[in-house]
Amino acid sequence: MSKYLLNKFLFTVDRDPDLVERYRADPRGTVTWWEAERANQILNLPAIEASTWLKFTADEREALATHDYVQLFELGAHHFLTLTLFIALFERDYDEPLGFQKEYAARLSHWRLPYPDIST
């Protein structure tokens, strides 16, 4: 489990308008590139001081590569990060106000407390 890295992906994509569009258009390619080039960058350090050990599990990689926010929830990705990024990705495709957010809730409606642990 690398919940921290899942969150790091969601966080670093969400804050970059170009990456949001790239991830919407090409999720698998973006995840592959990001894991190779960005996963080990410490955000407050220059590139030469990168980490060496961070990688996704197969389940995590597949959940990100398929825009599967239900699976991200179940893997313990931080609910706020997932929601915020996925609103940016998909709210535009819904005519009804909050249409995407309500569908998101419905797709998680089989969940009861306790929810998956988000501790990192």
């Binding site: 929830f73 609910h79 706020f80 990060l81 929601l83 957010q101 309500k102 809730a105 419905a106 998680l108």
Partner: peptide
């Protein structure tokens, strides 16, 4: 609730 089944009710 944010990013869960009870959001935006």
């Amino acid at each position: 609730e944010l990013g869960g089944p009870r959001q935006f009710g």
